[in-house]
């Protein structure tokens, strides 16, 4: 959501346009293709990461209470369920982080091409930025595979 969208998305309560689709609009990429699904993925991973961040702050702060408190807390959050959950957080970070780097680059005008006159047949910059999306997701895939090896095979 850029600054212009931020003001538009303020909705009827602030005199803006209504968000008629709501959350349902997240699930259909329409003609926007994979970038629209990356938008949905970015939101879902972002929500998951911010919820994990809150829990993570509360859990890791127990180190300030001493070794016994820390080790008791770590024992409570160990086991296969937590390990799979931690890997999910790792994967979410890889996807959110690398897609976020893509979004910052696009926001700065990288990889979207030069502005052109709107002359028929119209061209869109979506195709120009697609290689960046593919590279970002391939890099996320490599990070997730490396993390999976470390989580499940090397420990």
């Amino acid at each position: 959501m850029g600054p212009d969208l931020a003001s538009r998305s303020s909705g009827p309560a602030a005199g803006g346009l209504p968000n008629q689709l709501g959350v349902k609009g997240w699930w259909s990429g329409g003609r926007w293709g994979i970038e629209r699904y990356l938008y949905t993925l970015h939101r879902l991973t972002g929500i998951g990461l911010v919820l994990y961040l809150i829990a993570h702050i509360l859990v890791t702060s127990t180190r300030a209470l001493g070794q016994a408190s820390w080790e008791a807390t770590m024992a409570r959050v160990s086991g296969p369920v937590f390990e799979i959950g931690e890997f999910a957080v790792f994967a979410a970070f890889a996807l959110h982080g690398l897609n976020g780097i893509r979004l910052i680059l696009v926001e700065l005008g990288v990889a979207v091409g030069r502005p052109i006159e709107p002359v028929y047949p119209y061209k869109t910059s979506v195709g120009r930025q697609r290689p960046l999306a593919i590279v970002a997701m391939l890099a996320a895939g490599v990070a997730i595979i490396a993390g999976g090896m470390d989580f499940f095979f090397l420990h």
Partner: peptide, 14 residues
């Protein structure tokens, strides 16, 4: 994280 969450929730037009 919290600013991003705020943006998502504000888009739902509360």
């Amino acid at each position: 994280g919290l600013y991003g969450l705020r943006g998502i929730l504000l888009e739902l037009d509360p």
